[in-house]
Simulated scan of single mutants.
Amino acid sequence: MVTGFSNEKSAEFVVLNDLYRKIKNEYSVFYPFSFQKNRDDTMISFNNNVQDLHFIALFSRRPKTNNIGSSQSVVSFRSTHLLQASFFKEHGIPIIAAAPIGTSIETISFGAKCQWFKVTTNVFEEMSNLYFLGGTCITESDNIECINEDELLLFLRNTKLYSWTEVVGKIRNWYDDYLPQHSNNFFNVFRGQKPIFIVYKQ
């Protein structure tokens, strides 16, 4: 039985580092942020009149394994990820995902091999598992596609360009649409993992 030995927040640091290392020579601006209405959706924020920004949403996933040091690791996606992906798609926000692939803390630290994924919403399942043997993806879900570095870079180049104000507006529209339908407690906390957003420009 596989189980996790790290968490999504730690994985987020590693995959952001991996992404920045891959694109830093092509893009002069790389800004990851976690959306907060009372910080990003303000007049002072809108005074950042940045133009020609590419814009994506990112989910980081943690690896699981059956034994520390094993050659097998597993990356899981839950139905909440697919549900959120469908809402991103409705609002024209490209979504991508990534996970460091390893079976010990030493192998998933900064500089780790990271696998990148395209997320589709054709089929809704409770769980989609992707299996890795020696770091190579050997099983793919109907909803999740493993992509290589060239495919990742092409995906990033083909996203549309927006101003910062337009980016915040798109996130606000998504947030206002998604949250009332999919929060699960008195404090309107997101059900499932919260995405991180990234803007980048040449």
Rank of each mutant, 00 (worst) to 15 (best):
V119C: 03
S28Y: 09
F46A: 14
H182S: 10
D18M: 06
K9Y: 13
S34H: 12
K194G: 06
T103G: 01
N38L: 07
S73H: 01
F197A: 01
L156M: 02
I101C: 00
N185A: 11
Y131D: 11
E8Y: 11
T42M: 09
R62G: 11
G135P: 00
G111H: 00
T139E: 07
K160M: 05
Q84P: 03
L58V: 06
R78K: 13
L83I: 14
L82Y: 11
N7R: 06
F87A: 06
A97N: 04
Q72G: 07
F77V: 03
R61W: 01
P32F: 04
V2D: 15
D40T: 13
T80W: 07
L133T: 14
V199S: 12
N47E: 15
K89V: 05
N25A: 08
S163Y: 02
I93D: 00
I171L: 10
G134C: 00
N184C: 15
Y27E: 01
L130P: 02
N47D: 13
H91R: 09
F117K: 01
V123N: 14
Y200Q: 05
D177R: 12
S128W: 08
D176A: 12
K37A: 15
Q181Y: 11
K22H: 03
S6I: 11
T120N: 08
P100K: 01
E145G: 03
I196Y: 03
E126C: 11
S104T: 10
T65L: 00
T107I: 05
T165R: 12
F46C: 10
I23W: 00
Y175H: 14
N173L: 15
W116C: 00
D177V: 12
S141L: 07
Y20P: 05
V15L: 05
K24H: 04
S86N: 08
Q115I: 01
F30P: 03
K118M: 07
S60E: 05
M43K: 15
K9D: 05
T107L: 12
D150S: 08
L154F: 08
D176E: 15
N48V: 04
N143A: 07
Y200H: 06
L16S: 09
N122F: 08
E90H: 10
L16K: 09
I144H: 01
Q202A: 14
A85R: 09
M1V: 15
E12Q: 12
L154E: 15
S10A: 10
V50R: 13
D176W: 11
F59M: 06
D40E: 15
F132V: 00
N66H: 10
I171A: 09
N17K: 12
T121C: 07
I68D: 08
K170I: 09
R21Q: 13
G92A: 04
Q202W: 08
E12L: 12
P100Y: 01
R61N: 07
N122R: 13
L133F: 09
S163F: 02
K89Q: 13
Y131L: 14
K194C: 06
